[in-house]
Write a protein that binds this DNA or RNA. Structure first.
Lengths: 137, 137
DNA sequence: CTTGACCTTGTACCTGGCTACAGGGTGTAG
DNA sequence: CTACACCCTGTAGCCAGGTACAAGGTCAAG
């Protein structure tokens, strides 16, 4: 029961069945072992990978970047220092994304506050104070 | 000096000049006023918008979603309750993204820790413990 | 021993988000 | 008054990330 077909993997991973083949071609999923008749055989681990990919995409990572993220866990034969360095770089990327999302959230929260108040219809400054934190360390 | 041409807006917004026209077509930038000779006239506000769009994209929002985000600030003639409700929905989306990014960061941090230790080469479980928080409230 | 729902491969197509022309007008510097 | 760097419109092309066949093989249920 830890043996999944492509269709089952697609269902459990919540993606189109052809997407599985596409990810395999793109190197995001490892070439799976095959049954005697040539059917691909996937595992629960693959389900995890597919979900990871979808989630990472929703966060603005490209398939290329996601492949790099996944590679971090795959290659334990690489120098640990190298893996660590790349992981740290990804963490920095993520921190930046979180920071920007927080600023965005702040602005929306202000908007909500403005719309809850009484006064005249709100000026709704979503964009305001949202740009100087560009490359500002 | 608050009058920008398309080229200047593109430079200040850090996008390709044709992208400006594209955003206008897609309704992400309002139809700008024109000079006597037909040149588009933009403002600093437009620079803010362009940057907002780029940043939101990096965070995984589609142009369609970004248009909705921007619409929140544009239409103060809509019922405040309605605007507020949509803003709150967006905030929920953003919170979800932040949550997922944090989980991702956690896993990478664990990886870094593992790679810094001595022991045998790390098993590197980036994906582990990363799936049950799917729709789990 | 056939039907139906799966699987295989290869290849073509689609959508989103740009990006690049072609063919022409504008505007300021020398 | 001509260069040159900009602007205009329309339309075509490009890349990423899928999706959709067609033509055929597999397998469990009846």
């Amino acid at each position: 029961m830890n043996q999944l077909t492509r269709g089952e993997l697609a269902r459990q991973g919540q993606v189109h069945i052809e997407t599985i083949r596409y990810y395999e071609r793109r190197g995001l999923l490892p070439k799976p072992p095959r049954s005697h008749s040539g059917y691909r055989i996937f595992s629960r681990e693959d389900v995890r990978r597919v979900r990871f990919i979808k989630r990472a995409q929703e966060l603005g990572f490209s398939l290329k970047e996601i492949k790099e993220l996944l590679a971090l866990q795959i290659e334990p034969h690489t120098s640990r220092a190298a893996v660590r360095q790349r992981a740290e770089a990804k963490i920095a990327d993520i921190d930046q994304k979180i920071k920007t999302l927080r600023a965005m959230r702040e602005n929306l929260a202000r908007l909500v506050a403005a719309c809850s108040g009484r006064g005249p219809i709100c000026g709704c400054p979503i964009l305001r104070g949202f740009e100087q934190e560009e490359e500002a360390e």
